[in-house]
Simulated assay, not measured.
Amino acid sequence: MTNASTPLDRIFQALSDPTRRAVVERLALGPASVSELAHPFSMALPSFAQHLRVLEGCGLVVSRKTGRVRTYALEAEALSGAQDWLQGQRDQWTRRLDQLDHYLLQMKET
């Protein structure tokens, strides 16, 4: 295992924060300006902007500036790596639990 973080590591690190998860959930509804995204949170705009930089840095969101307004949008494709990893984990645990169930049924019959 290396110390270098992978794109998947950066995505999970970004999603580990509840504020950033809430921003991703909001952006799933459609693009929004920084002020729209920051409105529900009681924090200074520079602090909130750090969350947006983390999300943009790992590729979960993209931003576009039109005039003085910066708008963010979800980059849903970036979530596919995390989704694939989670599905692999789900499949693995389903197989393990099925094997345990089969084993327990055999033990019960003997």
Rank of each mutant, 00 (worst) to 15 (best):
35 S>K: 11
98 D>Q: 15
74 L>P: 01
102 H>W: 11
93 W>F: 10
12 F>K: 07
47 S>Y: 11
64 R>A: 06
30 G>V: 00
82 A>P: 01
96 R>W: 09
28 A>Q: 14
30 G>N: 02
95 R>F: 15
107 M>P: 00
91 D>V: 13
63 S>C: 13
87 Q>S: 11
107 M>W: 07
109 E>N: 13
71 T>R: 02
98 D>R: 15
8 L>Y: 03
20 R>N: 13
75 E>N: 15
104 L>M: 15
2 T>L: 09
3 N>R: 14
5 S>I: 00
43 M>A: 11
11 I>D: 04
37 L>V: 02
14 A>M: 10
29 L>N: 14
89 Q>P: 00
34 V>W: 06
97 L>G: 10
32 A>I: 02
82 A>N: 02
105 L>G: 08
33 S>P: 00
10 R>P: 01
99 Q>T: 11
91 D>P: 04
106 Q>E: 14
107 M>H: 14
72 Y>M: 08
107 M>N: 09
13 Q>R: 13
99 Q>D: 14
65 K>L: 11
64 R>N: 08
72 Y>Q: 10
98 D>S: 12
4 A>D: 02
50 Q>R: 15
52 L>G: 03
5 S>H: 09
27 L>V: 02
87 Q>H: 10
2 T>M: 08
110 T>V: 05
51 H>G: 08
3 N>P: 00
58 C>R: 03
106 Q>Y: 05
83 Q>C: 04
7 P>I: 08
26 R>A: 13
93 W>P: 01
108 K>P: 00
92 Q>H: 10
93 W>R: 15
28 A>D: 09
84 D>N: 08
25 E>W: 07
91 D>Q: 12
61 V>Y: 05
84 D>T: 05
101 D>V: 07
68 R>I: 00
52 L>P: 00
106 Q>V: 02
101 D>Q: 13
65 K>Q: 11
66 T>V: 10
52 L>H: 07
12 F>Q: 06
109 E>R: 12
74 L>A: 03
17 D>C: 03
46 P>L: 09
77 E>Y: 08
29 L>T: 08
20 R>C: 03
72 Y>L: 11
105 L>Q: 15
16 S>L: 00
92 Q>A: 14
17 D>S: 09
96 R>F: 11
89 Q>H: 09
40 P>H: 12
42 S>L: 07
72 Y>I: 03
30 G>M: 02
8 L>T: 00
34 V>C: 11
106 Q>G: 10
